[in-house]
Amino acid sequence: MDVASHTVTNLIIFVLALYVGYHVVWNVTPALHTPLMAVTNAISAIVIVGAMLAAALTETTLGRVMGTAAVALAAVNVFGGFLVTRRMLEMFRKKERRAAPPTAAGAGS
C-alpha cells in the first residue's frame, strides 16, 4: 500500500488543529480577548522557523536577503507579542492581589 501524500497528512493535521483551536478559544474569557489577540500574534510568529531555515540554508543572495528579513519581521512578533501579552496580564493580576481579601472566600473559580 502506498503512503498518503504529505499534503493529505498535512490536511488532517490542519483540520484537527482547527477543531482544537475552535474549542480552546471559545473557552477564553471575553475579558482577555485583547491579550488573546496579542498572544496569537506571537504564536503565528512561529513562521520564524521557516525564516531561520531560509536565512541559514539558502545559498543565493535572494534567498538569504528574504530569509534574514523574514527572521527580523517574525522576531518583532515573537518578542513583542509575548512581552506585551505579559504586560497586559500583569495588569489583571495586580487587581487580583488587591481584591484578594474580599473574594478569597468565594474564589473557587
Partner: peptide, 24 residues
C-alpha cells in the same frame, strides 16, 4: 502592525522557498 509583520514574513519565506526549494 504585528499582523502585517507576519504577512510580510510569510511572503518572504515563500519567495525564498520558490527560489531554493532544496534548502527546505
Amino acid at each position: 502592525f504585528m499582523h502585517s509583520m507576519i504577512g510580510l514574513a510569510a511572503v518572504f519565506i515563500a519567495i525564498a522557498a520558490v527560489a531554493e526549494p532544496h534548502a527546505f
